[in-house]
């Protein structure tokens, strides 16, 4: 009797057996230890954080309020807003044109050559994605000088990486039946893509394109910070002059514009999806 009772307790069910449980707990402990070490290494004054949060409201109330609304309703500033929108529009457009190619060449099922073109396209997509849009902007500004052209190019690269990956994933998910039918009927590579692939991904591509424009606009509001044109330049100037009330007004205008563009893009994507 005693033996069977002992066995019943010994037969406790566990989700993970010995080696996995050790690895699992070890990984958690390692992550926590790393986080604790980082707090120490970065010399973060933990005891001052509550104080800082209190000060945050004070700073907001005393320096950033009230926002200088007259400044952002100025004619010059509104011109810059329009230019920012144009920059985002062009950057997204060029980026999307590039990313259609990247998506085609970088999709495993439709790429012209799996050996050579596929890895190159994947590498370019990854490279465009991995480098932050601000770094692209800085690089183009130092090569081409100040102005909106570097901003357009930075957004082009950013959008090409962003949309290229999504396009490639979309193409990889298509039904291969029509493509094989086209091939069997003797269509060449170009015809297969135009008549076999494109009709299947048209709606998804439109949705992704609208979303890309939205993301590009969000990036366009700040690339000017490094001299690439648009509203970011105003922001930088106000920051350097420590005109905090103007900074507050500019940030407010950015938030308002981004929210508007988000609503517009959500509405447009919804329309496109329903047309399907």
């Amino acid at each position: 009797m005693a033996g069977s009772a002992g066995r019943a307790t010994a037969l406790q069910w566990r989700r993970f057996r010995f080696p996995q449980s050790l690895i699992g707990h070890g990984a958690w402990i390692a992550v926590l230890a790393f986080l604790a070490f980082s707090v120490d290494h970065l010399e973060i004054p933990l005891e001052r954080i509550p104080d800082m949060l209190g000060r945050m409201w004070q700073v907001l109330a005393s320096r950033y309020y009230p926002p200088d609304l007259a400044y952002i309703l100025d004619r010059d500033y509104l011109d810059y807003v329009v230019e920012t929108i144009q920059m985002a529009y062009l950057g997204a457009l060029f980026g999307l044109l590039l990313s259609v190619l990247l998506g085609w060449f970088g999709s495993f099922n439709m790429t012209p050559s799996r050996r050579f073109v596929y890895p190159v396209a994947r590498l370019f997509t990854m490279g465009f994605r991995a480098v932050h849009e601000m770094i692209w902007a800085i690089l183009f500004v130092s090569i081409l000088g100040f102005g909106m052209l570097p901003g357009v190019l930075a957004l082009t690269f950013f959008c090409a990486g962003f949309a290229g990956k999504l396009f490639a994933e979309e193409i990889e998910a298509i039904d291969m039946g029509p493509v094989e039918a086209m091939r069997a009927a003797g269509a060449n590579l170009f015809q297969t893509v135009v008549f076999g692939v494109f009709p299947q991904v048209r709606v998804a591509f439109t949705g992704i394109s609208i979303y890309t424009w939205d993301v590009a606009f969000r990036a366009a509001t700040v690339v000017g910070f490094v001299g690439a044109g648009g509203m970011g330049w105003y922001l930088k100037r106000a920051v350097l002059q420590i005109e905090t009330e103007r900074v507050a007004a500019i940030i407010l205008s950015i938030v308002a514009l981004v929210i508007v563009s988000e609503i517009v893009s959500a509405y447009a994507r919804d329309r496109v999806m329903r047309m399907k």
């Binding site: 970065l42 973060i44 700073v59 969000r218 905090t244 940030i251 981004v258 988000e262």
Partner: peptide, 28 residues
């Protein structure tokens, strides 16, 4: 959620640098 996503990280960092000073804490 909307505020957090619509403001670029550079702008957020500018704000926190103004509040907590230069250094990693503002970035965090």
């Amino acid at each position: 959620m909307t505020l957090s996503r619509s403001i670029h990280e550079i702008v957020w960092a500018l704000f926190f640098v103004a509040v907590v000073g230069l250094g990693p804490l503002a970035g965090i």
